[in-house]
């Protein structure tokens, strides 16, 4: 039926937002960057890309959960910073290795639970609630260590930060594992399915016997947990737990997820959409850095991409 009404090429490519579209944009961008910079297609830069996309990707996967239910979690970057600082604080107390990983994850989960409570129990609209916690988490990430950063000289952290397996950085492997788990959860578990149902119509989902509140609560927990995992990865990049981690990059996650084709209004999208969006955003950022673009212009372009991504999303919603 759809084949009869043949929408124009531009409309089809831009609006439908399928995986092919994003891939197309990605390839076009790669060609552009490599024509502008001889460094783009080097092994070193590929590693840079992998490192950059690792923590962003993990958080973006987490972000996909609440967004699929039609909610949003804008507190991720500060929550990652807070989880990192907790990790730093516990490192000072002598915790090492997997213990640090546990501390970061628990902090992330706690942050997620706070967001979920605000949205679910107190019925505050998700946007405002998580902008509020964005400030609160950021404040705590400074308060935890009185505003000083913590150098973490842990062997696990060093392994994640500097080692490679089969030529691919460990942190990228971690992202791939998280990707696989998230993909599996969304596709093959009842919880994953419930996310899509709740995002399509809360009322219909509720009347079909789906526990809407529980679904959304767990979605926020997932988002928080990913911040904790991302904190480990981020900290291991430099070996330092930074209070200001992710400052100014808060919206990069939103841009990546939405440009990948996951709908802001819920019910539509996938982890692969998010993955492609993350790679696309990483390539954008990487290319701009390689070209030595003025940081204010970088900010400008990121802003433009966010606006365009959300605009395309509204077009898609109107089309459906």
């Amino acid at each position: 039926m759809k084949r009869n009404n043949n929408p124009g090429f531009v409309r089809r490519v831009l609006v439908n937002g399928n995986v092919g579209t994003v891939l197309f944009a990605l390839i076009a961008l790669c060609i552009l960057w490599s024509s502008l910079s001889p460094y783009f297609f080097t092994l070193t830069n590929a590693k840079n890309l992998a490192i950059y996309s690792a923590y962003l990707g993990i958080m973006a996967f987490g972000f996909t959960f609440p967004i699929l239910t039609g909610s949003i979690d804008l507190s991720q970057m500060p929550l990652m910073a807070m989880s990192g600082m907790m990790m730093g604080a516990f490192y000072r107390l002598g915790v090492t290795g997997l213990g640090l990983f546990g501390v970061a994850s628990m902090t992330g989960l706690l942050g997620g639970a706070i967001n979920a409570t605000l949205v679910n129990v107190m019925n505050i609209i998700p946007f405002i609630a998580t902008v509020g916690t964005q400030l609160i988490f950021r404040a705590f990430s400074f308060l935890i260590t009185d505003g000083v950063y913590v150098t973490v000289k842990d062997s696990m952290i060093r392994t994640i930060g500097y080692e490679s397996i089969l030529g691919i950085p460990v942190m990228f492997w971690i992202m791939l594992i998280v990707l696989a788990i998230c993909w599996f959860v969304l596709k093959y578990t009842q919880f994953g399915r419930n996310l899509y149902c709740v995002g399509s119509s809360e009322q219909a989902a509720h009347l079909s016997g789906i526990n809407v509140k529980k679904t959304r609560f767990i979605a926020y927990l997932c988002s928080g947990l990913m911040c904790g995992i991302a904190a480990v990865v981020y900290t291991s990049q430099s070996g330092v737990a930074l209070n200001s981690a992710g400052t100014g990059a808060e919206m990069d996650i939103v841009t990546a997820v939405v440009i990948g084709g996951t709908s802001m209004s819920g019910g539509r999208g996938s982890i692969f959409n998010t993955f492609l969006g993350v790679i696309l955003m990483s390539v954008v950022a990487n290319g701009m850095a390689l070209l030595g673009l003025n940081p204010y212009f970088q900010m400008l372009f990121k802003g433009l991409i966010l606006v365009v991504a959300v605009y395309l999303d509204t077009l898609r919603a109107r089309n459906a």
Binding site: Y196, S200, S201, Q203, A204, A205, G267
Partner: peptide, 13 residues
């Protein structure tokens, strides 16, 4: 449309 069905989901779901 709002309470009975999830319009953007496939028939299967």
């Amino acid at each position: 449309k709002t309470e009975g069905l999830m319009l953007i989901q496939p028939v299967r779901v």
